[in-house]
Design a protein around this nucleic acid. Structure first.
Lengths: 247, 247
DNA sequence: GCAATAGTGTCTTTCAGACAGTATGAC
DNA sequence: GTCATACTGTCTGAAAGACACTATTGC
């Protein structure tokens, strides 16, 4: 615990917006990370982000950064503020306050479209290790927010394409929560909750197996009662490994 | 919707910390408000707050402001960050970013001890009307955070004194949620949840009626399963009025 | 037929909601 | 005794957890 001298002067500082962009790829839940090109923490991985500009809104800044990094704009995209980090020592150069945003995107066919893909990449969330600055905390807080929101809201549909199967939606929950979810009880809950999903009438035929009915996101935004993630702890390497292999 | 020109320059701004300090007084849930002594919004009510200082932490700034306004320090006090507001137009003078904190204090015998009580006062939450800046939003978000946290955590004990009765704890829920809670089901839930409250063995004798057993806060921090506030809508003036009269 | 995925049905247990009744004090 | 508050007990219904079985495709 370092006791820094606190000045009496009002601080005038830079504000940045950092993004925790989550998506689901074949092998599970991923987060977008960038490799830092300059000091400090040169060469280390960090969350994408940037400075708030003069006369700019916080959500606008987040959307701008998101577009710069992924090429994604408004369409079917979730963006929510998570927390703010203002430790004087979190950036060795200067006192910088950062506001973190959680972004959730549907599975992207292209990896990182129309961006500086040279230094940006999707990383499996359970491989995230030593990020620059205090980004480990920022990331952990945002991930927990996402996990929690799946319990109380219909947010999971944002991870999916326009239309999706119940199985795909269930795999979203499994990927985010990091554990298996009973398919039968999940079906009951999802189809039984008014406005969660609405059937399109179409089906999707794929490799062996019965074709699955297609749905799209319903008007409901909250889940009452919630779908609680009991007994699903940290991704036990056991389940994660098995599931990673199968997928 | 005003479209302000966004500069390309990085903004260098003042950061403030605003506090939503909740406590329960005889007549229900109250929030601490201050009357502004100067422009803008002179004479209007606002949330207490102040500027972040150089080399100062956000939580430290919040604690400092809290001590200045209420005289309360660490002891048995909940403080948590809620959200950050950065609209360029939220302060007419300058672009100021504010981080809001929710503070929860036990019932204070003295109103506002050791502070500039001249301009500070406790206001019933359902009488909060037209606050300065965007403080209506800030307040609403923090209040909703408190209401939600009572569902999933044991936070309600922070509103109480060191020892308390189940009835007192129930009145905390009723005050925060703004509706009646069934005493019998509440007792079952609270005493049946491991680590929520622990009996002290003592009782408290008061005016007519059987003495109530005293408890203190247990080690549990979360409630699983949660205690959901179903069927408790906005404080229907009906219940609020009745309860306000009785108390 | 087999393999693989999709979907339905049932039993049990936990727990919230909705009640009525008993207990212990002050007066 | 009355009044007021504290506490316990029971019934019911909603819903989650834990199972096994049927259905529809490709091969």
């Amino acid at each position: 615990m370092v006791m820094a001298a606190v000045s009496r002067r009002h601080a005038r500082l830079y504000v940045t917006v950092d993004l925790v962009i989550l998506t689901i790829r074949e092998e599970g839940l991923h987060v977008l990370l960038v490799e830092r090109g300059k000091e400090p923490y040169q060469g280390q991985l960090a969350l994408p982000g940037g400075f708030l500009r003069e006369r700019e809104n916080l959500p606008d800044a987040a959307r701008r950064e998101l577009a710069e990094e992924t090429g994604l704009s408004d369409a079917r995209l979730h963006l929510e503020q998570v927390a703010t980090y203002g430790d004087p020592g979190r950036d060795p150069r200067d006192h910088v306050v950062t506001v973190s945003y959680l972004a959730i995107a549907p599975s992207l066919p292209a990896p990182v479209a129309g961006s500086d893909a040279r230094h940006a990449r999707w990383e499996p969330v359970d491989r995230v290790d030593r990020l620059a600055f205090d980004h480990n905390d920022v990331f952990a807080d945002a991930l927990e927010r996402a996990r929690s929101k799946l319990e109380h809201t219909t947010l999971a549909t944002v991870f999916c394409a326009e239309t999706f199967t119940i199985g795909e939606l269930r795999r979203v929950y499994e990927a985010v929560w990091g554990g298996p979810v009973d398919a039968r009880n999940f079906n009951r809950k999802v189809t039984g909750t008014d406005g969660f999903v609405v059937p399109t009438g179409e089906t999707r035929r794929s490799t062996p197996g019965r074709p699955a009915a297609l749905y799209r996101a319903g008007p409901a935004k909250t889940l009452y009662p919630p779908m609680l993630r009991t007994n699903i702890g940290a991704p036990t390497s056991e389940w994660t490994r098995i599931n990673t292999m199968r997928a």
